[in-house]
């Protein structure tokens, strides 16, 4: 870990001022990802601005949603009664991630910005990585790529976003509240993370000095009818191979509305827009779910080791929707 200066921000404005004061500063939340990346010398900021003491409140919005401070700890968010009852997919996504100790430390803002687990990205000494070192090349494409992307990857980068929480936020049409020197603005959560393209070094559309201050969940009438399913290589404490976040509204045997997002399949939390479009108005049957999954995965491109993810994602989507439809849907 390179030496760095440490400063604690009093408020968001202070944080933004500190981080834009020059050099290569970074915001520090719970540290669960950034400290690890610094120790591995993937990240080498010359100063850290600690924002873990900023807003950790969860408040009701005027429109029936929730406003979640960026410094809310993952455990607090997952355990919040309104989240558990109204947005169970978000609780479940968070509880499926990492370990209790890490969830107790990690902030919502930090979780959103956590970086890929691609092992070539982590191997600063011995591997090439365009995300870490733009233009260096990618050793993952022809290497161990079992955990890598099947959707929207580029020849430059096949990394996946590792967050569970982000998959739920993508499904929920969340909005990210940003503070910067220029003032405050919001970004739709699904617009926050990028496809890798030719510039995989950028995980998100945030500019230097942009601080995530809150995440807003809109009211969603059927979000209580939602869940998150994570498929991984051991029963707990492992990153997703594939995960599915979904909320489903079935009436009279038809899908009235749906939110669907996938994790573990792309450079960003993957909102399954095509599947949703295919599902709206369709009969709530396993066949509809399969067709929707097929529509979403039609563009999936396997690498040498991760072709199984296509079938796994398809099956998991169908299983999750079938479960959510319950007795209102036709038995699979």
């Amino acid at each position: 870990m390179n030496p760095f200066r440490y400063a604690r921000a009093d408020d968001a404005a202070d944080a933004v001022a500190l981080v834009t004061a020059g050099g290569t500063a970074a915001f520090l939340g719970g540290g669960t990802n950034l400290v690890d990346l610094m120790r591995e010398t993937v990240a080498r900021p010359d100063s850290l601005v600690d924002v873990s003491g900023l807003s950790d409140e969860i408040t009701e919005t005027d429109t029936g949603g929730l406003l979640i401070g960026a410094a809310v700890r993952n455990t607090a968010l997952a355990g919040h009664l309104a989240v558990r009852t109204r947005y169970p997919l978000l609780s479940r996504a968070i509880l499926g991630g990492a370990s209790a100790q890490i969830r107790n430390m990690a902030t919502v803002g930090g979780n959103i910005l956590q970086r890929t687990r691609c092992t070539y990205f982590y191997d600063t000494a011995g591997s090439r990585c365009n995300k870490r070192d733009p233009g260096a090349g990618c050793d993952a494409i022809d290497g161990f790529n079992r955990i890598h992307a099947i959707l929207d990857a580029s020849p430059e980068c096949v990394a996946t976003n590792p967050s569970d929480m982000c998959v739920a936020l993508a499904a929920l049409d969340a909005t990210v509240h940003i503070r910067s020197l220029g003032g405050a603005r919001t970004i739709a959560f699904t617009d926050l993370h990028r496809t890798p393209g030719e510039t995989p070094e950028y995980d998100t559309v945030l500019e230097p000095g942009d601080l995530i201050v809150a995440v807003e969940l809109p009211a969603l009438p059927f979000s209580a009818q939602s869940t998150y399913r994570k498929v991984r290589d051991r029963a707990s404490y492992a990153f997703a191979l594939v995960s599915v976040a979904a909320a489903l509204d079935v009436q009279d045997g038809r899908v009235r509305d749906v939110r669907l997002a996938l994790g573990g399949v792309a450079h960003r939390p993957w909102r399954a827009w095509k599947a949703e479009a295919a599902l709206r108005g369709a009969p709530a049957t396993a066949q509809s779910y399969r067709d929707a999954a097929d529509a979403e995965l039609a563009d999936a491109r396997p690498l040498s080791d991760n072709g199984f993810k296509i079938e796994l994602a398809r099956r998991t989507i169908v299983a999750v929707l079938t479960e959510l439809a319950g007795p209102d849907g036709e038995a699979a």
Partner: peptide, 18 residues
Amino acid sequence: TVLVDGDRILSCLALAVQ
């Protein structure tokens, strides 16, 4: 793992100054 104000955390990922 240690307890900070009763919560379990990982002290390896915790910068002491925080």
